[in-house]
């Protein structure tokens, strides 16, 4: 058996085993790996924030290039911290209002094209079992979420909800199956790393 000389591969391999040891039970090796991960992730985030956001915008653009118009969004961002003051908490509503306006505008501008294409695609000919099932599933699922109607509504609504409930359960089953497949794929990918890149027995 030949081992990879790469120090990084060895560290990753050993840390992986430390993390997997949790499957046996909670233990100091698992805790050490967990704490190292949390510490590294926090440190990485701080460095990333500085290099990718703060330095390019404040040091390079604002101070060096003199783009003083950037003071406006910076001021808007700083106002969010006013929520810590009882007296000036109302100022935090300004950036929140800006953010809500941006969100609403974005959705109004871009979502209709996406959603209407989906809606149009549901207008199908009922000429096959699949299409009939799809049609019933869509109508049933929508009627399941008509909360404004009473639970003892008319027969079509009740049957619609019944179909909707079963359609949703089938959909959740499919999602669960895919989730299991996804987790197995992740495990296999990692075993591929351990057996292949680390131990070279694959």
């Amino acid at each position: 058996m030949s081992f990879s000389p790469g120090l990084g591969v060895w560290i990753a391999g050993l840390l992986s085993l430390m993390v997997y040891s949790f499957l046996w039970r909670d233990n100091p090796l698992y805790r050490a790996a967990e704490h190292a991960f949390v510490g590294l992730a926090a440190a990485y985030s701080v460095v990333l924030l500085y290099h990718e956001t703060l330095r390019p915008r404040i040091v390079d653009d604002l101070i060096t290039a003199g783009k003083w118009q950037l003071l406006f969004p910076i001021l808007l961002g700083v106002l969010i911290y006013a929520s810590f003051s009882n007296r000036y908490a109302w100022l935090a509503r300004i950036p929140i209002a800006f953010w809500l306006g941006y969100g609403a505008g974005k959705h109004l501008a871009y979502d209709p094209a996406v959603i209407l294409t989906q809606v149009k695609d549901s207008f199908i000919k009922l000429d096959s079992i699949n299409n009939i099932l799809l049609f019933l599933g869509i109508i049933g699922t929508i009627s399941y979420f008509l909360f404004t109607l009473k639970s003892q509504a008319s027969a079509p609504v009740r049957y619609g909800r019944f179909i909707g409930k079963w359609t949703l359960m089938v959909a959740f089953g499919a999602l669960f199956g895919q989730a299991v497949t996804s987790r197995i794929s992740t495990l296999l990918g990692y075993l591929g790393f351990l057996f292949g890149d680390w131990l070279h027995i694959l």
């Binding site: 695609d121 895919q178 989730a179 497949t181």
Partner: peptide, 22 residues
């Protein structure tokens, strides 16, 4: 693989020209 059921309707509607799962 877990994202595949979410992506499939977009492929059916033609918004994705093709999709692979996991």
């Amino acid at each position: 693989a877990i994202g595949l059921p979410v992506a499939k309707p977009y492929m059916k509607a033609g918004q994705l020209a093709g999709i692979l799962g996991g």
